[in-house]
């Protein structure tokens, strides 16, 4: 990626291709995995020592539980490689990756699997919204995100590590969204409080979705996949009430 010196932006955000090793796990045996990888690292330290790798669990019959995946990641680490994420898999894998705080790379299977096979995907891994009715198991790709069901309310803080997802509707948060917390909605997001974590509206591609925040200091905001991360929050926006929307695929942010 070459830096364009005449650009007013501090950086460019692009999808690009970088080589990354993929560890395809064939059985859940952390010790054996560690031994095997250690052998590879020793054989070619220049290539594999501290190499970034992703873990592919899609070849296992059943997705291992969190503890087992933790052990596998630890095995990779102790072999001298650096696991940076999970790769491939179903929405269950995606939920697992979220719980692990890791990205799921190349999640195309998650996007195309039938909705009926998704009971493992929780709206929120922790019961952040107990009042929420059970999401209807209708195929999520058949209709664009609508807001026909009314909004989902979340009263109180969304703490670091928590995730609140309003499926096929708007999300209204009355309280702060902490650093490391995530609020996601297929519709719009309204936050009456500080946003220090991430907010993702239009999660299923609704480009008309908007985000409204009364105290803006986020890590990331996204609408329909167009996102912006904030290494430094612009002074004119920080702490103000702000709205975000999409205009010609560009994420706009302005004070209210």
């Amino acid at each position: 990626m070459s830096a364009r010196m005449n650009s007013p932006d501090a950086c460019d955000l692009r999808f690009g291709q970088v080589g990354i090793a993929c560890v395809r796990v064939r059985r859940v045996d952390a010790a054996a995995l560690c031994d095997e990888l250690e052998r590879r690292v020793r054989a070619a330290p220049q290539m594999f020592s501290r190499a970034a790798v992703v873990l592919d669990l899609s070849h296992l019959l059943d997705l291992p539980d969190d503890g087992a995946v933790d052990a596998l990641l630890e095995a990779v680490r102790s072999a001298g490689m650096l696991p940076v994420g999970l790769a491939y898999g179903t929405s269950a894998t995606e939920a697992l990756a979220k719980r692990m705080g890791l990205p799921l790379i190349a999640k195309f299977r998650a996007a195309y699997e039938p909705a009926t096979a998704m009971p493992a995907m929780p709206a929120a891994p922790e019961p952040a919204a107990p009042t929420q009715p059970v999401p209807q198991p209708e195929p999520i790709l058949s209709s664009p995100a609508g807001t026909a069901q009314g909004a989902q309310h979340h009263v109180g803080a969304v703490r670091s590590g928590q995730q609140v997802y309003a499926r096929e509707r708007d999300l209204i948060v009355i309280g702060a969204v902490a650093n490391g917390a995530e609020v996601i909605a297929d519709g719009n997001i309204h936050i009456y409080g500080g946003l220090r974590g991430r907010a993702m509206a239009g999660a299923q591609g609704d480009e008309k979705a908007r985000i409204f925040v009364s105290d803006f200091r986020p890590e990331l905001v996204a609408i329909a996949g167009q996102y912006r991360v904030f290494e430094q929050i612009p002074v004119e926006l920080e702490g103000h009430s702000v709205q975000c929307w999409l205009e010609d695929d560009k994420l706009m942010i302005a004070r209210l």
């Binding site: 109180g156 703490r159 590590g161």
Partner: peptide, 13 residues
């Protein structure tokens, strides 16, 4: 940040 996480867990787990 870690305390924030713990506060969340106290409210759920």
């Amino acid at each position: 940040r870690d305390s924030d996480r713990i506060l969340g867990l106290l409210a759920s787990k």
